[in-house]
Write a protein that binds this DNA or RNA. Sequence first.
DNA 1: TTGTATGCGTTATCAT
DNA 2: ATGATAACGCATACAA
Lengths: 334, 334
Amino acid sequence: MTVSIKDVARQAGVSIASVSRVISGKPGVGSATEARIRKIMEDLNYRPNLGARGLVKQQTGNIAIIVPRGSFTLNNPFFSTVIDGIAKGIDQSDYNIVMSFSSAQQKKLLENKSVDGIILFSPRSEEFRLEWLENLGLPTVVIGSYIDDSPFPCVRPSDTDGIDQAVHALYERGHRHIGLVNEPMSSMHSVKCWEGYHQALQRLHLGPGSNDMLELNEFDVNASDRSVAAFFRSRPTMTGIVCASDYLAIGIMRIAATMGLSIPEDLSVIGADDVPIASLLTPALSSVQVDLPGIGQEATRMLIDLLTGKHVDSKNLVFPMTYIDRETTRNTEH
Amino acid sequence: MTVSIKDVARQAGVSIASVSRVISGKPGVGSATEARIRKIMEDLNYRPNLGARGLVKQQTGNIAIIVPRGSFTLNNPFFSTVIDGIAKGIDQSDYNIVMSFSSAQQKKLLENKSVDGIILFSPRSEEFRLEWLENLGLPTVVIGSYIDDSPFPCVRPSDTDGIDQAVHALYERGHRHIGLVNEPMSSMHSVKCWEGYHQALQRLHLGPGSNDMLELNEFDVNASDRSVAAFFRSRPTMTGIVCASDYLAIGIMRIAATMGLSIPEDLSVIGADDVPIASLLTPALSSVQVDLPGIGQEATRMLIDLLTGKHVDSKNLVFPMTYIDRETTRNTEH
DNA sequence: TTGTATGCGTTATCAT
DNA sequence: ATGATAACGCATACAA
C-alpha cells in the first residue's frame, strides 16, 4: 500500500542507492537518471518514511515540550503564550513538537528515544528528579526559574526583580500594607517571587512580609476561594496585592468581586507576566511585562543550537520585566 | 551508547527473540529465563526504541493535532480548552500528541508516516483540500463545524442553535436591533453562526440581518479596531451584539470601552462557547455554554476507536449549547 | 521453550 | 555514475 524507496527504484530501473542519493541531494547520479527518478517519485507520490530514516540517522526530528502535570492547562495563559513563541521559533526548523500530558506518558516519551531534545517548563521539585533528567542524556533547555545550579541552559523572566518592581509601584502610589499571592513554594518560580517581594519590603522598610504572603495549596487560585477570602478579611488595612502571575490576579479579581471589594477602589492588584488577556480585561490589569513569546522563541533557538552542535553561549538568559500601569492600581492615602 | 535488545540478549545469554517476547509479554519463554532477562533489562536500563518498533508494526503511536494556521494561537481559549479535553482523552491511551505550526510542516507531518491518525480542527476552505486529506488515508476526526458531507466523523458544538439562543435571549430582554460579529466566512463555523443568527431574526420577524453582520477580515478581532468602531457608530440603535466566539466578545468589550460605550449599559454583548475566562471577566461575559473539553475528549475517543478498529457508531456528534446569563446583558426599552 | 532468519524503509560503505 | 549490501532496533514466522 505505502510506496517505498524500493518501488521507486524498481519503476525507475535503478538501485535503491541511487534513489536514496537524489532524495538526500547527494552527488553521484547522472542528470538523466536523476530526472527519471524524480519523475517516478512524483508519479508514485513517494514520501520518505521519517521513522526509518530516524532509525539509521539516530534522530527523530521531534522535540518534546514538557509541562508540569497539574499546573498544566493550556488555559494557563503563561504556557500558551510561551508556547506560541516556541511555535514561532520552531517554524524555521524541521522539528515537530511532541507532547504528553500524564507524567507516566511524559516519562515514556523521554525514555524511549522518541525525541531529540527537550523544552522543559520548570518542573516542581517533586516532579522530575534532576538526576533522572540528566541521565536521559538529551539536550534540554529549561523555561522559567529552576534550580540555580542545574546543568541545563535556562531562559526565564527576571521574576525577582519583576515582583520587586510591582511592590515599588504600589508603594509609590501610597500603599503601605502590601500582600503577595503566591503559588505553592514547591515551585522555584514561587520562591523567586517571594524573594522579590521580601527584598522590596526590606528596602522600603515595610517589614519582612512573612505574614502577608498567601501561599496557595493549588496552582489554580480558583480552587482556593475560601482561603483567599479569609486572607483578605483578616487584613483590613491591606490596600495592595501583588500576584505571582496574571492568571492568579484574574482569579483574585473575581474573588474580590464576590466579596464586594471593588478594584481598584478598595484594592489595587498587580499581576505578573502581562499575558495577552491582561490588557483586555475590564478593568485592565496592571502587570509586570515580559516578552513571553520571546522567551519561548529563544529557548527554542538555544535547543536547536544545542541539537545542531552549535556553540551555545549564554547558559542563562534572563528576560527583563517592566511594570505596566493600567487600571487595577490607584493611589491611596495612608 | 544506547542499549538495544541485542545487548540485553547477549548479557542474558539468550537470543533477541526471547528478549522480544518478554518485552511484548508474549508467551513461550521459561519463567526462569524470563526472570533473568527482566533483571538484565533492569540493570542495563533498557528502553525499547519506539521508532524501530513502529517500523515493523507499521504504526507510530502518534496522533497529530492540526490547527488551522493563522487563527492559531494557543491563546485562543477555544483551542486551548478543547485541547485540554484531548489531553484528558489521550491520557488513557498510549498515544502521544504531535503538533506542527506552519502549514508546510503540517503537510510534511501528515505525509511522511509520522502519525497514525489526525485530530483536525475544522480547517478553512482554503487550508487543506478535502481530496488531499482523504488521500492521506489516515483515520481522521474533525473538531468543529466542517463541510457537511465530509467523509470524516465530526464532533462539534451546535453553533447554529447556540447563536439562535443568544439572539433570543437578547430579544427577551427587550432588544430589537441585534448585530452579529462574525469571523471570516471562509470558515464553516462562521457560516453556521450566520445561519443561526439569520434564522433567529426570521423567527422573531426582525428582518434578514444581512446588514447587521460584521464579517471580520482576520480571525483576530484585535486586528480590526477601526472596522468594529465604524460598525458600531453607523448603527446607533443597535443595543445588542452576539459574537461568534468568546474570544471575539472579549475583543469587542475592549473596543467598546475605548469608544466610551459601557457594557451592559449601552450595549449588551453575548459570546459563544463559554471558555473558562468568560466567567472571570468583569463584567462576567454572558455566553452560550458548550462542553469544550468534552468535545476534545470525545473526538479523541472516536479517533482511538477508529485506530483500534472498533466500530464507530455516531458519525456526527453534536454537543448542545445553552445560554448562560451573566453580566454583559441587560434589559432595554425599545 | 528457544533460536534463526527475514523484513520494516532508510542511509551509508564499499565495490564496480 | 551506479549497485550490492550491511546496519539501525525491533517483531515474527518458522525451525529446532
